[in-house]
Design a protein around this nucleic acid. Sequence first.
DNA 1: GAATAATTGAAATACCCATTTGAATCGAGC
DNA 2: GCTCGATTCAAATGGGTATTTCAATTATTC
Lengths: 242, 242
Amino acid sequence: MSPPNASKSPEIHTKQRILNVAIELFSVKGYRGTSIASICEQAHVNVAAVNYHFHSKLELYLQVWRIALEHETETNPFDGGIAETASAEERLRGRIRSLIHRFVWPNAPSELSMLIIHELSDPTDPAVDEVRFNAIRAPHSAMRELVREMLGDQATDQEVLFTTMGIFIPVFGLGLQQQSVYRRDHQPNNDGNSVRNKLPGEILRDAISQEGGFEALIDHITTTTVAGIEAVRKNIKKRGNP
Amino acid sequence: MSPPNASKSPEIHTKQRILNVAIELFSVKGYRGTSIASICEQAHVNVAAVNYHFHSKLELYLQVWRIALEHETETNPFDGGIAETASAEERLRGRIRSLIHRFVWPNAPSELSMLIIHELSDPTDPAVDEVRFNAIRAPHSAMRELVREMLGDQATDQEVLFTTMGIFIPVFGLGLQQQSVYRRDHQPNNDGNSVRNKLPGEILRDAISQEGGFEALIDHITTTTVAGIEAVRKNIKKRGNP
DNA sequence: GAATAATTGAAATACCCATTTGAATCGAGC
DNA sequence: GCTCGATTCAAATGGGTATTTCAATTATTC
């Protein structure tokens, strides 16, 4: 009777189907921008299922966060696969590679980074702060320690802080641009010429889509970052002990 | 009769009062996050006034954008007040100063930059693209030309692009962090310890709030940026003509 | 100072959304 | 094959929002 629901039953459980769609929609359109109804529609599931399996929209969202965080940590560790024993510059390169992968992976930022960006520009609920904080804190303090190591003991805290920020924060800018481009690409009414020229994010996307472009970007960022660190070190040496 | 409406009449016109409140709320909470009702409440104005003076919420929003863009252009020109005749490094410093002022001005990012960030992470309507584009394009292409000048003719387009992005895009990351901190500060239920440690944006805000911290940040960014450009130039020289 | 247009006010309308409800259906264990 | 708990379904509820409506009020013009 009724439609042959081949998309149901043992294959993938309702709960999992909801999660799969939710992670996609929440990361692209944010918490407020995605309705339970739209999730259920795409997952071929009744709206009540969401409130049955997860108590509320917010709890579903939290679950999505936890899954995205786990997934990112597994597939893309902070160290970029570089051993602890490698040179500082090697390790820096690994960290930068990992960050870029998260926030500008050619086709789209990772789900986690998109969630982070939405949460930063439009916080959902204090309950999310905890998990969001965990997602940001670990890579940030790891980077800070590495910068401290590279700048040496004579560097002031402010120098370490600014230098760390100089590496860490720009990727949020990259992610924001990428996310904007990604959304624009997926807009249903995108006729491609409503705005005459390209936004910085689109120019960048084009560049890294080219053969070798992505590696070139990582090279460029690593090179300029190392040069920046070197410049700060020179200043420290010139100044001597504070 | 009724309350002595001292907040009305010739003083400031209804339309202007709406705009004043709208620019504040839209920039902090975004388009979707602010209701017409909340604007009218704060402006001591009836909801119908919005739809009388501006046809719709969207048109009010567009008006706010135009005003914010105008205001920013007047009070904070791209060149940071540095003359065309100054050295390239001086002009770069001016541009960086201007960008930082827009996106991380100690107390809060400017209205325009907050609008931009919201629009990037959660686009409102194609009608906004035009004005948003104008807000981003001018400083971006100015920066690009300056970078081209500093890198010389032998630099590839990709080198110019990446270097420009390396200066231009990070400020979006800064702005995103600042906006997040700013919103958190202004949340009504902010007990200050729902999350134990500080987010990068908060650490940074603390640092630039200190005496001389803001200038130190601009110094740091300028120094590392110049060092980065110098590194790219060296690569170009080493490589010779492509 | 009357007539007319502009503006404001309070309430109504229409839509979207999260959540609830209670019946229907399914599935495992006996 | 029956029972009971788990799951799914369609419809209803309640709260929020943008927008409209039209009468009341204010300002402007002659």
